[in-house]
Amino acid sequence: MPVKPMPLSPERIDAIATLAARLFAGGGTLDAVVRAVREANPDLKTVTGAMAAVMAEEPFREEAAFDLHLVDGNNHCWAITDKPALATGVVIAQREEED
Rank of each mutant, 00 (worst) to 15 (best):
M1Q: 09
M1A: 14
M1P: 04
P2Q: 10
M6I: 07
M6Q: 14
P7L: 08
P7E: 11
L8E: 02
L8S: 09
S9M: 08
P10M: 13
E11T: 06
R12M: 09
I13Y: 06
D14H: 12
D14P: 00
A15F: 06
I16M: 15
I16H: 06
A17F: 11
T18A: 15
T18N: 14
L19T: 09
L19Q: 15
A20I: 00
A21K: 12
A21T: 13
A21S: 15
R22D: 14
L23I: 07
L23N: 02
F24G: 02
F24I: 09
A25W: 04
A25V: 02
A25R: 13
G26L: 09
G26Q: 08
G26D: 07
G28P: 02
G28I: 05
L30C: 05
D31I: 04
A32T: 04
V33G: 04
V33P: 00
V34C: 10
V34P: 00
V34F: 03
R35H: 12
R35T: 12
A36W: 07
V37L: 11
V37S: 07
R38Y: 03
K45N: 03
T46V: 15
V47I: 09
V47M: 09
T48Y: 03
T48G: 08
G49D: 02
A52R: 10
A52N: 12
A53N: 09
A53F: 09
V54A: 14
M55N: 06
A56N: 11
A56M: 13
E58W: 07
F60D: 02
R61M: 13
E63S: 14
A65I: 00
F66K: 06
F66M: 11
D67I: 03
L68C: 12
H69S: 04
L70T: 02
V71H: 00
V71E: 01
D72H: 08
D72P: 07
D72M: 08
G73C: 02
G73R: 01
G73E: 01
N74Q: 13
N75W: 09
N75D: 11
C77P: 01
A79S: 13
A79L: 13
I80C: 09
I80L: 13
I80Y: 14
I80M: 15
I80K: 06
T81E: 08
D82E: 11
D82W: 10
K83P: 01
K83W: 05
P84R: 10
A85F: 04
A85S: 15
L86C: 08
A87R: 03
A87H: 08
A87T: 04
T88K: 10
G89W: 01
G89E: 01
V91H: 05
V91Y: 00
V91P: 00
V91Q: 05
Q94H: 10
E97P: 03
E97K: 15
